[in-house]
Every structure is written in structure tokens, then in C-alpha cells.
């Protein structure tokens, strides 16, 4: 049957004259390992994932702790100031007049 449909003519010509290459019959080397590795990653339980994440966070946590500790630890060099000493003496004199 004659048709004026240009797409039909083009698709018929393409189908008749070009052939899809035959698919390979064997997997390429390492293909199955790659698939299984992806499946293993996906099958890891959430608990394992959390544990792995927590373990990775240990160095970062330790660094943060160290910085905080250095920032807030009591400095022995900063003792009682002369002002506060003087104030204390005045207070003692006031309470226990000689």
C-alpha cells in the first residue's frame, strides 16, 4: 500500500536496511563483581552506616573538644587581681576593725 507518511517511509527504510548489532553473549570481565559491590553497599544495615559515620567523626570530634578545652580551661596565671586584693583587705578591715 502506497503511503504519503514521511515518517513511515523513513522508519520502514531504516528497519529494513539497518540491523541492530547482535548483543554480546558473555559478560565483560569484572561486570558481576561491580554489580555485587554495589549491592553490598546498598545492603549495609542502617546501624552499620551509623557506626561507620560515627567512627569517621571521631577525629573531628576530638579536634573540636581540644579547641574548646584550650579556650575555657582555668588559667593559673590569671589569679586574684590587685584590685580585688585591695577590696578584700578593705572589707576585712571594715568587718574586724583593729
Amino acid at each position: 500500500m502506497k503511503t504519503n507518511d514521511p515518517w513511515k517511509k523513513l522508519s520502514d527504510a531504516t528497519r529494513r536496511r539497518s540491523r541492530t548489532p547482535e548483543p554480546p553473549t558473555e559478560m565483560p570481565w569484572g561486570f558481576d563483581n561491580a554489580v555485587l559491590a554495589r549491592l553490598r553497599d546498598m545492603r549495609s544495615s542502617p546501624a552499620e552506616l551509623w557506626l561507620r559515620l560515627a567512627w569517621r567523626m571521631v577525629p573531628a570530634g576530638a579536634a573540636v573538644f581540644l579547641v574548646c578545652w584550650i579556650a575555657v580551661r582555668p588559667n593559673p596565671a590569671i589569679g586574684v587581681t590587685s584590685d580585688s586584693k585591695e577590696l578584700a583587705e578593705l572589707l576585712i578591715q571594715e568587718v574586724f576593725p583593729q
Binding site: P23, T25, F31, D32, V35, L39
Partner: peptide
């Protein structure tokens, strides 16, 4: 078993 399945279904 998974490897056998892949080998059979790959084509």
C-alpha cells in the same frame, strides 16, 4: 548464585 543469574541473563 547471583553471578550465575547475571551470566544467564546478560545477553
Amino acid at each position: 548464585a547471583a553471578r550465575r543469574l547475571m551470566a544467564a541473563l546478560y545477553p
